[in-house]
Simulated scan of single mutants.
Amino acid sequence: MAEFFTFIPQEMLTKLASLAGQELRLQWGFNEELTMLRETLLMVEALLRDADHPRHNQGEAVQRWVAKLEDIAYNADDLLDECRYEELRRQVEPRTRMDTTLNSLSLSKCRFRRRTARKIQKINESLEKLYKLAPGIGLVSASWPSANATTSHNRETYSFFDKDEENIIGREEVVSDIVTNLINSNSGQASHLSVLAIVGMGGLGKTTVAKLVCHDPKIEEHFDRKIWICISTDFQVMMILRRIWQSFKHGTAVEGKDELCKSLQQELKGKRYLLILDDVWCLESEKWEELINCLLNVTDRVGCNIIVTTRNVRVASTIESIVQAFSMREMDKLSNDQCWQILKNRAFPDGRAHINGDQEIIGKEIARRCAGLPLVAKVRANYTITKF
Score class of each variant (00 low, 15 high):
88 L>A: 12
91 Q>T: 13
45 E>F: 06
14 T>K: 12
73 A>N: 10
43 M>L: 14
31 N>G: 12
35 T>F: 08
36 M>R: 13
53 H>K: 07
28 W>S: 02
66 V>Q: 05
85 Y>P: 01
44 V>P: 00
14 T>C: 08
57 N>I: 02
17 A>E: 13
74 Y>F: 12
73 A>L: 13
75 N>G: 09
93 E>F: 08
72 I>H: 05
32 E>V: 04
75 N>R: 10
45 E>K: 09
36 M>C: 14
57 N>H: 03
23 E>Q: 15
19 L>V: 07
41 L>D: 11
39 E>L: 06
76 A>D: 04
34 L>G: 00
13 L>N: 14
81 D>Y: 10
34 L>K: 02
15 K>Y: 12
29 G>K: 09
48 L>Q: 03
61 A>C: 07
69 L>R: 00
72 I>V: 13
94 P>M: 06
37 L>W: 08
54 P>Q: 05
65 W>L: 04
74 Y>A: 08
22 Q>F: 11
33 E>V: 09
25 R>D: 15
55 R>G: 04
40 T>I: 02
87 E>I: 10
66 V>I: 11
55 R>M: 07
83 C>H: 00
11 E>R: 11
92 V>Y: 03
42 L>D: 06
65 W>S: 01
44 V>G: 00
53 H>M: 04
55 R>A: 06
44 V>W: 01
84 R>T: 09
83 C>T: 00
38 R>V: 06
20 A>E: 01
79 L>M: 07
49 R>N: 13
70 E>G: 06
76 A>P: 05
24 L>H: 00
62 V>H: 00
46 A>C: 11
49 R>G: 10
67 A>S: 08
38 R>N: 10
43 M>G: 04
37 L>F: 11
64 R>E: 10
65 W>Y: 06
14 T>G: 09
52 D>F: 07
38 R>K: 12
71 D>V: 08
19 L>Q: 05
12 M>I: 05
85 Y>Q: 08
79 L>K: 04
87 E>T: 13
36 M>N: 12
45 E>D: 14
21 G>Y: 13
24 L>T: 03
28 W>H: 07
64 R>F: 09
89 R>F: 13
27 Q>N: 14
74 Y>W: 10
41 L>T: 12
72 I>W: 04
26 L>T: 15
36 M>G: 09
61 A>V: 06
78 D>A: 11
44 V>K: 01
16 L>T: 03
54 P>G: 03
12 M>D: 04
74 Y>G: 05
33 E>T: 11
94 P>L: 03
85 Y>K: 09
75 N>Q: 13
51 A>V: 01
27 Q>D: 15
38 R>D: 11
17 A>K: 14
88 L>G: 05
33 E>M: 09
46 A>K: 11
13 L>F: 11
81 D>P: 08
88 L>V: 05
88 L>P: 06
19 L>D: 03
46 A>T: 08
21 G>D: 15
39 E>R: 12
23 E>C: 12
75 N>D: 13
94 P>N: 02
51 A>F: 02
85 Y>H: 14
30 F>C: 07
48 L>Y: 03
